[in-house]
Design a protein around this nucleic acid. Structure first.
Lengths: 232, 232
DNA sequence: CGCTGTCAAGAGCAGTGCTCTCGTTTTTGT
DNA sequence: ACAAAAACGAGAGCACTGCTCTTGACAGCG
């Protein structure tokens, strides 16, 4: 968090102002969405002239990137907190906590969810800064898969025939995290990961309109099915 | 398609101009994305002044809605054509054709895919016009589920405990299409539907960055797993 | 022929991201 | 302690956006 003690008075003022900018920007984002986020509106609310903001963020995209990082952090933190309340030996409970934790966060912060998991903004290529915080949730799922692996939980899917290249790629992912998960379970985990977010995106982006008037129950049912698939 | 024969000469000119507008708008959309679509740029390219476009589309959102409808139509048509080439008794092949057909279309038209399956645009609530064309793909999947049901294909998932309200809602969906699918298979189908689009969205929206450098194989493997889940 | 509705064009409003310049203030180096 | 350097807020300005309103020209119909 605190990378270095700010000494000069101007530095602490600068840090505070940056926090104020991102704060009101996040509020504007939550209220009107990413396309409605305007540097001029933010600066106006902060009582400064629009050009002054460029001393703190070189462009609108830079501000957006900061908000993306914070959103990844928020959803990661929400999922972690939800999972932390569950007994670590209750693997099914842990998965359900993660899944519902992500969904609850997404439903309370739909615009921030759309910002990170929706269509990417204009000509914007996700910079490196966003990759690390994005992996926070996936790491949680990865650890769950590793625990299932350690418990020898039986997969409910037939093992797919994967090329050695893909198996190596999957192995590298778990090795990076210092874990061990079989390629077959990783493939299943990828499927669960995508179904989980597919479900939430469909719900938030309106694809369930005229299908479900309330996605609570179908979501819960699918979470159970996903858990069973992974071996719970 | 042709709702009524245009009689007056002015009407055919008007229809042709509307086609020209949507055509160049679609090109701009494909090249720069939804946020980069500008009425002024379209009108400029068509050699008319910006205000003239408002005679044909009352607002930018109206143009966007038209493009959304056409995009739903395009992906629906792509999926239908892919499926039509498969022997109708080859249920697994039909599902694979649909899945890969959607993905192929999405990869060739990423911005149009993002327009319909990504985060919804600003304050924009999907109008009724977009609901019918959106159901084209889901109807294809629904029919496949009904054929699996008729063949008594065994589900690879345990039947979930669903409330009678949810079962009724699922039953209404299939009844609307004049088909019969058990609630359990419907629940599985919902899961497959969401995983399929979750997979494509993750690939197109950059969530697979630093995970797979090529999603071809994992997608194919997951499609097989999804088919098996539904009873293939 | 004349009336009515449609049309393109232009000007204009309010808003946007972003750049540049100009004094002022704060920090830094000597 | 004093001067040079860096950072800062303010303002004007550019090019762009969606959208509205008015004006004058044209086509189709009675």
């Amino acid at each position: 968090m605190s990378d270095s003690a700010p000494k000069r008075a101007r530095d602490i003022a600068r840090a505070a102002l940056i926090r104020e900018i991102t704060g009101t920007a996040r509020r504007h984002l939550a209220e009107e969405g990413a396309t409605g986020l305007s540097l001029r509106a933010v600066s106006r609310e902060l009582g400064m002239v629009s050009s002054a903001i460029y001393r703190y963020f070189p462009s609108r995209d830079a501000l957006l990137t900061q908000l993306i990082v914070e959103a990844y952090d928020a959803v990661g933190s929400a999922a972690e907190q939800a999972e932390a309340e569950i007994d670590r030996t209750d693997l099914g409970g842990r998965f359900a906590a993660i899944a519902h934790g992500i969904r609850d966060w997404a439903r309370t912060n739909p615009h921030e969810y759309a910002l990170i998991y929706g269509s990417p903004v204009p000509g914007y290529a996700a910079p490196e800064d966003t990759i690390a915080p994005a992996s926070r949730v996936t790491l949680l799922l990865l650890r769950l898969l590793a625990d299932l692996e350690a418990a020898d939980a039986p997969l409910a899917e037939p093992a797919p025939a994967l090329s050695s290249a893909l198996e190596a790629q999957l192995a590298a992912l778990v090795a990076d995290a210092g874990l061990t998960v079989s390629p077959a379970r990783m493939a299943t985990g990828i499927g669960v990961w995508t179904e989980l977010y597919g479900m939430i995106s469909f719900e938030l982006f309106g694809q369930f309109q005229n299908v479900f008037d309330n996605a609570d129950e179908i979501f819960a049912a699918r979470v159970e099915a996903m858990a069973a698939r992974m071996g719970v």
